[in-house]
Design a protein around this nucleic acid. Structure first.
Lengths: 144, 144
DNA sequence: CAAAAATGTTAGCCATAACTAACTTTTTCG
DNA sequence: CGAAAAAGTTAGTTATGGCTAACATTTTTG
């Protein structure tokens, strides 16, 4: 009673987990430092610099970032929206883990980083609903 | 605010997601058919037969299964316990998705297959507690 | 402004884990 | 029993996505 789709073999559309990680890292680095520098992305993801170069080229091929050697990376429109979606999923999952499962923020953070690549829209949306509901309840209890 | 450990580079101990999938598949096939035949494992996981051979050799190296060419696969003691742990995680996650998040069994099943490899003990245990609690509440409501 | 430091890239390598084609072994059945 | 079918293996290829070493470019600073 198992059924699995190998994550290898990116057919055509859809980003790999790794690519989503890079998008998210770029977003976060740019948020924090204004620009997304390669070294910071590498630092954020814990990979070596050449890995970043490779990833940026891939993302550029997919039309998600503007990459120019030795220049600084920016998102394309498509890139912004994709990165945003990943970040949203991350946030929903993390909030759920923290607010519903009552897990440490650090643990929730790491788990969300991994889970964000594989939980589908149905589960994510249930998590969001759940968290929202719980917050509403808290507001009611505290008679805000 | 991200931090990621690449899943590549199995250092020494700890199974890869793929290896855990094989353990689980062997368990399920053996449960269903009495013995774990290569073809059934391949069918269960949706991989080609040579992939199974390769995986079995790896698992044998790690002392988790007894592998003999053209013979049928059995677990070692270590293998049984590892496979059991994976299956347990799977079940906890699936139950949580179904009973708490109210997600379709099929969707929960697929998501659990993926999540079981990356959610850590803290989150898994919270999920289990949550599901258990909810079942108790249901028993109370129905005055069993 | 030029040399040193920092940053980024290229080239080449490694590991995981899939695949196909061709072969061997085992099982099944006329 | 023995030939065909089924099951399993081997060998070789592919893709992803890391890595290091060495080189190129940009930035910083004395």
């Amino acid at each position: 009673m198992i059924e699995i789709k190998r994550a290898t073999a990116r057919k055509n559309n859809g980003l790999s987990a790794s690519q989503e990680d890079y998008l998210e890292a770029i977003l976060n680095v740019a948020d924090a430092s204004g620009t997304a520098r390669s070294t910071d992305i590498a630092g954020t993801l814990g990979v070596a610099k050449p890995s970043v170069t490779g990833a940026l080229k891939l993302l550029a091929q997919r039309g998600l970032v503007n990459y120019k050697p030795y220049g600084c990376v920016t998102f394309t429109q498509k890139g912004v929206s994709q990165a945003g979606r990943v970040a949203q999923r991350h946030e929903i999952i993390k909030s759920f883990f923290v607010n519903i499962l009552r897990v440490d923020a650090a643990i929730a953070q790491k788990a969300a980083c991994k889970a964000e690549h594989l939980l589908g829209p149905v589960i994510i949306s249930r998590m969001r609903d759940f968290t929202k509901l719980s917050k509403k309840k808290v507001r009611q209890r505290t008679k805000r």
